[in-house]
Every structure is written in C-alpha cells, then in structure tokens.
C-alpha cells in the first residue's frame, strides 16, 4: 500500500487506502477466489454420482449331496453357502483385511494374500484381518436360495425353509 507522505499514522485513524490499491487488491482476490472455486468445482468430477455395478443379489440351488458344514461356492461369487440341521447360512469370502478372496478349508478359511485365518463361523483366529468375515442375508423359498452380498446380518443367523 502506498503511504501518503505527511498523513497521520495511527491505528485508530488509519490512512485511507488509495483507490488504485483497493482495486488492485480486489481484483487479485477475485481472481484467486474464482480459481479456487473453479478448482473445487472440478474436483467433483472424479466421483461419479451413479456407478454401474453388477447386481449383489443372486439365486442359487444347493446340490442335494452337500454335507452339513461343507461349503458351496457359487460360480463367480465370493460367497460360501452352508446347509446344516439349523438351517442355511452364507458367509462372504472377501477378506476383511485387504479384500482378497479367502479359501475355505477344514478348519474354516485362509487368506492367500497376507495369511489371515478364520474359523468356521468367520471369526478371526490369526493374522491382520480386523473383523470377522461377514454373514450375508439369505432368503429361502423351497429349494431356491437368494443371497444378498450387500446386506450383512449378525454372525450365527441361520435361516430355515419358510
């Protein structure tokens, strides 16, 4: 800001800002805020409002030969479906650590990527996984079972044929 020689200088009685300085500062700040708003606005672009994704619900029929406690993995789905005396349940086989697909074995599940182990109910017994494997919502009508990968239910929820 230009200081006008001879004018009184006091915090209570400041120099009036010369008009040219005011205009200059005003245009600088307008330019800066316009650029900022433009930038913030364009930052919205990378996040789509609607994303295409395959359906999360699917229907499956369990083979009659499926033994109690034996996992049935529908083709192309990261889900293990079980049938026993108490009913039917589905456990997601997506590792809660970093999203690899776990493999079911005799004791439960094992993750090939970072060595997490889960028991037969999906509870963590070893490794870096922070949470138990999710149990998924299951609807049963006759021999047809509908599983929703998008809806988790409390561990231990088994569904009988309605």
């Amino acid at each position: 800001m230009t200081v006008i020689p001879g004018s009184p200088k006091s915090r209570l009685d400041p120099d009036p800002m010369p008009r040219r300085d005011w205009l200059g500062l005003a245009s600088l700040w307008s330019a800066a805020s316009a650029l900022l708003f433009g930038l913030v606005g364009s930052m919205r672009l990378p996040k789509a409002a609607v994303v295409a994704a395959p359906s999360k619900t699917f229907k499956v029929t369990l083979p009659d030969s499926l033994a109690a406690g034996e996992a049935f993995v529908p083709a192309g789905r990261a889900v293990a479906v079980y049938r026993d005396a108490e009913g039917i349940h589905a456990i997601s086989t997506i590792c809660t650590h970093l999203g690899c697909v776990v493999k079911s074995n005799a004791e439960g599940f094992e993750c090939p990527c970072h060595g997490s182990r889960f028991d037969a109910t999906g509870g963590v017994v070893k490794g870096p996984a922070p949470r138990a494997l999710a149990w998924l919502q299951v609807k049963v009508s006759g021999s047809e079972i509908q599983v929703d990968e998008g809806k988790a239910v409390p561990s231990g929820t088994k569904v009988k044929n309605a």
């Binding site: 083709a75 192309g76 789905r77 990261a78 650590h97 970093l98 690899c100 697909v101 493999k103 090939p112 990527c113 970072h114 060595g115 490794g127 870096p128 922070p130």
Partner: peptide, 29 residues
Amino acid sequence: NPSVPENPAKAPWYFLGLQELVAFSAFMG
C-alpha cells in the same frame, strides 16, 4: 480372475517389504 487370487499373491520386489508390513496391520503397514 476376480474369484481366485494367486497363492501366494506377491507384489513386485520393491513393495514386498510393505506387503510384509500390511500383513501385520493394513492401516499401520
């Protein structure tokens, strides 16, 4: 193949130290 990861699923060598760390905790590693 989205349904079966390789076993073991290994990153290139310069990220394997990091992979060892995330095998302890995803966030910390």
